[in-house]
């Protein structure tokens, strides 16, 4: 699905990713944990195609293609989805219109005809239920005036609608209370069950999320590199001992 080799990236001349390796196979869920500033979100943004980040070395292969050659919209159409850490407000852009435009752009890429308005409206009502999203929100501008929890749920709602092959969740859990966290996690788990080939990269600061979205692999990221990988028990170890123990073992 995704194969990252020795990836190096910087922003405004500041080196953030310093040789990162990661392979995700179809159907796997990987979690990346790390302190603030370790480069977790940079990785998400680089994979999403944010132009402000400059890739200075390494390679990223996504479903057999060179991901770094693709524009952000091409990545999305090929099946990559990035749930934003800070979902963006789009005043004056209605959610329903925004989603239909995105949905049909992806269909067009697959050589399918655009979905008629009525059928599409049924589809989004259905997906909104999955995320317990107030249907009234669908009549509003994208994320405008949404609470923090509503914004994050809206991200997973879009993910459910666009049915990507690889889902990247960039600190989707941060700032969520336990109820919202459960809703978001159950939405993600439904997507996992729906398609056994679908892969997930869950970037988080807190172990708590991983109680709900149980990963197959956990990676610890420090200073732009993955310093330790393991099974889901690694998250618990991290919770117990803290990041400093890994930093120390790295130094020694």
């Amino acid at each position: 699905m995704l194969n990252i080799k020795d990836l190096k990236a910087e922003i405004d001349g500041k080196k953030i990713l310093k040789g990162l390796n990661l392979e995700i196979k179809p159907g796997e869920t990987h979690a990346i944990m790390g302190v603030n500033g370790s480069g977790k979100s940079t990785l998400a943004n680089v994979l999403g195609g944010r132009e402000e980040y400059e890739v200075t070395g390494g390679s990223v292969e996504f479903l057999g293609q060179n991901l770094l050659d693709l524009d952000p919209e091409e990545r999305a159409r090929e099946g990559l989805f990035l749930a934003f850490q800070y979902p963006v407000e789009l005043p004056g852009v209605l959610i329903s219109y925004f989603l239909r435009t995105a949905y049909n752009a992806i269909r067009e890429h697959r050589g399918e005809a655009p979905m008629p308005v009525r059928e599409f409206s049924k589809l989004i009502q259905e997906k909104a239920k999955l995320l317990e999203l107030n249907p009234e929100l669908l009549q509003r501008s994208v994320n405008e005036g949404f609470s923090g929890g509503e914004k994050k749920r809206n991200e997973i709602f879009q993910m459910a609608l666009l049915e990507p092959k690889l889902c990247i969740l960039d600190e989707t859990d941060s700032g969520l209370d336990i109820d919202a966290l459960q809703v978001v996690s159950s939405g993600v788990n439904t997507l996992r069950e729906q398609d056994p080939e679908r892969s997930f990269l869950v970037i988080t600061h807190y172990q708590r999320l991983l109680n709900y979205i149980v990963p197959d692999y956990v990676h610890v990221m420090i200073d732009g590199r993955i310093v330790k990988s393991g099974g889901k028990e690694l998250a618990l170890e991290l919770e117990e001992k803290g990041y400093s123990s890994f930093q120390q073992s790295l130094a020694s």
Partner: peptide, 8 residues
């Protein structure tokens, strides 16, 4: 970028 990241 947000719009493009959704395939638009």
């Amino acid at each position: 970028f947000y719009l493009r990241s959704r395939g638009i």
